[in-house]
Every structure is written in C-alpha cells, then in structure tokens.
Amino acid sequence: MTITLEPGRPKPMPTPETKHFWDGAKDGKLLLQRCGDTGRAYFPPRPFSPYTGTRNVSVFEASGRATLHSYVIHHRPVPGFTPPYAIAVVELEEGPRMMTNIVGCPQTPEALPLDLALEVVFVPMDDAISLPLFRPAATPAAGRTGVSMGVE
C-alpha cells in the first residue's frame, strides 16, 4: 500500500522539546516518553512528566498498535485534503491518545467502527517530516480487537 499526501497539508514544525518525536517518525519509529516515577507513557512530547512533574523521563519506541477511539468524517473542502476524510483520535496500546488519519480503508462509518484495531504507518511529507497515520491492523492480536487498552 503506497500512501501519498496531497500538497497543502499543514506541516508540523518541530521544537527542541519535540524534535526526537519527528526524528523518530522520519525513521519509521513511533516514539513516546515514559514517566520515571510512575512508569506511565505520555504524549505529546515534553521534557517532564505530566503525572508527577519529574524531569526523570525516557524516550521509548511504541508498538505502533492502537484502537480507534473516536472521529468525525469531514465533508467540506480543506486545503490538502479531499473530502470525505476521517479526522480520528486513536488510543495507543501504551495508553496515550493522538490525533491522526485512518488510511487504507474507505472513509465511511461502516469501515470505521469504534475500537477497530489499527497499526501505525509513516507517510513522508518531505525529507524531514513524516506523519504517523494509522491503518486497519493486518492481523489483529487475539483479544485486542474491541478492547480499549487503557493506561498500561
């Protein structure tokens, strides 16, 4: 499956606090951070834990597995997008949620049931930035489909 992005899509500009995330995405890795006090994963990136405020945090590679938490299917024209397209929030296996698009399936309610098992796919915008998008999982792990994973 080859996915290409239309020109005109807003491009993220990394900051010092988020550069590792975008560098990881460019290399095909979904990088999260973990709180050194609680062991809980968090997103979006920041150099301290939102749970306890500790600066003792680490970066780790997430599994890339997620479930479809909620979404809308936008029907109006937007620069860089051809409607209808889903604007989704997925729940990563490690707990955090992120906004994304769902690719590799029709943009219809029937093709996008909540809790659908998903996997990350990185799609380049240019040499520096790749976006983490999600597609229906090829082989949903037993017991995962339909289950909200919650916080690890």
Partner: peptide
Amino acid sequence: PPEPATLNGQFEAPFGPFGPPTLFPIPVLR
C-alpha cells in the same frame, strides 16, 4: 490558524481539522 510549531500545529493541524465543526464533535461517537 495555529502556528506550525505550536502543539496544535504539530499534533492536530496536520491531520485536517479546519475550525470548530471538525474538532468539537470528535468525542461524540465515543
């Protein structure tokens, strides 16, 4: 619109939200 280096600009805007009608109803299906 959100600046591309803000958190919204990095982690929401690239996925096609375009004003409140595309953002506010996102939790509704859940």
